[in-house]
Simulated scan of single mutants.
Amino acid sequence: MLSEEQEAELTKLARSKRTSVRLSQRARIVLLAAQGVQNKDIAEQLGIGRVQVSRWRERYVEAGLEGIERDLPRGAPPLKVDVQKLVELTTQSKPQAATHWSTRKMAAELGVSASTVMRHWQANGLKPHIVRGFKVSRDPKFVEKLEDIVGLYMSPPEHALVLCCDEKSQVQALDRTQPGLPLKKGRAQTMTHDYKRHGTTTLFAALNVLDGQVIGQCQPRHTHAEWLKFLRQIDRQTPKGKTLHLIADNYATHKHPAVQEWLAKHARFNMHFTPTSASWMNMVERFFRDISENRLRRGVFTSVPKLVSAIDEYVAHHNTNPKPFIWTKSARDILQKVIRANSRLSSKQNGTLH
């Protein structure tokens, strides 16, 4: 039974265009009930469930208008997450029989959902699934070698050539066990994951810092004998009046006594060695990355001669329109970055020990 005041209030809510659709519907339920309409008829008329009609009638009887204005609680109450414990577990522990936490493992550990774990990881900048590699050089002459090589890149000497030299060893001639399908609209190129090995070759390369030209040579091995053979090729293919500054890593074959003896007889060759564990200073590595990405990784080679032919073709094509790699970082900038990396690494190691 409704008073005139209650009926007017509910009618206003049911007809109002400003109130929410839910509240308007609940007001109509109560009004129809006051007219003696049964629950099933109200449900059919409003297109809702009979249980829903009964619930809001009871809510109005118990609390009046306030009872239908408040929404009923939905689902289980949200679990409170101990964020400090979550961060501590993520950064200072490992799950059993695993190397790192996943959202599901952490969710099972804390009794929450995986999406909750992910949300708090993102809020705290935690990415347990990612590991970043690093290598810090411990060469006692790091600064001296750094300044020497960067100086050659940024202020090359006059009447001289600066060549970045290295070998890309164990380049495999890989053939696929089955022919793949070519790229077409709506379908990516296919290639079997397994392969047949047909041998290997080693690519020796010297990158001219000035113009980006590459002197390349493929050989079956990479001992000091092959290195000497490559040095002789460099000697033949470079202008005789030019002094040569060769940048290379600390591989033992580059410092073999036979190599040292040959270099002593060829005074225009000047060797500059990168610091230990700092091959990234050698710009020929950029060329190796390009040839791997553009020609070797997805290539199919049924023999070593065909692999060598493909490499020679790539080097020749590169030399038709070479583009030099431009070195932009000064020795001071690099040194400051290395110092910061060492400092962070030392502080983390000390924190782990404590």
Rank of each mutant, 00 (worst) to 15 (best):
L2Q: 00
E7A: 11
K12D: 05
L13F: 01
R15N: 12
R18A: 10
R18G: 09
V21P: 15
G36V: 09
V37R: 13
Q38G: 08
A43I: 07
Q45C: 04
Q45R: 06
Q52L: 14
Q52M: 13
E58S: 09
A63M: 09
E66A: 10
E69I: 03
P77R: 10
L79N: 02
E88I: 07
T103Q: 13
A107D: 09
V112N: 00
S113L: 07
A114G: 12
V117P: 02
H120E: 11
A123M: 02
N124F: 15
I130Q: 15
V136N: 15
D139A: 15
D139C: 15
D139Y: 12
P140R: 15
L146F: 10
L152W: 05
Y153D: 14
Y153M: 11
S155E: 12
H159T: 02
L163S: 05
Q170H: 08
V171T: 05
P179G: 00
G180R: 00
L181Y: 02
P182R: 11
K185D: 07
R187C: 06
A188R: 15
A188M: 10
A188D: 10
T190N: 00
D194E: 10
T202V: 06
A206F: 00
L207Y: 01
N208G: 01
V214H: 02
C218T: 13
P220M: 05
T223M: 08
H224E: 01
A225Y: 10
K229D: 12
F230C: 03
L231Q: 11
Q233E: 07
D235N: 12
R236K: 14
T238C: 02
T238Y: 03
G241A: 11
L246R: 09
I247A: 04
T253A: 15
H254A: 08
K255S: 09
H256N: 12
V259F: 04
H266M: 05
H266D: 01
R268F: 05
R268G: 03
N270P: 05
T274C: 07
A278V: 08
R289K: 12
S292M: 15
E293M: 14
N294M: 12
L307F: 03
V308P: 03
A310H: 02
I311A: 04
A316H: 08
H317A: 10
N319H: 06
T320Q: 13
T320P: 00
K323S: 02
P324R: 12
T328Y: 12
T328L: 12
A331P: 03
L335N: 02
N342S: 10
S346G: 10
K348M: 10
H354D: 08
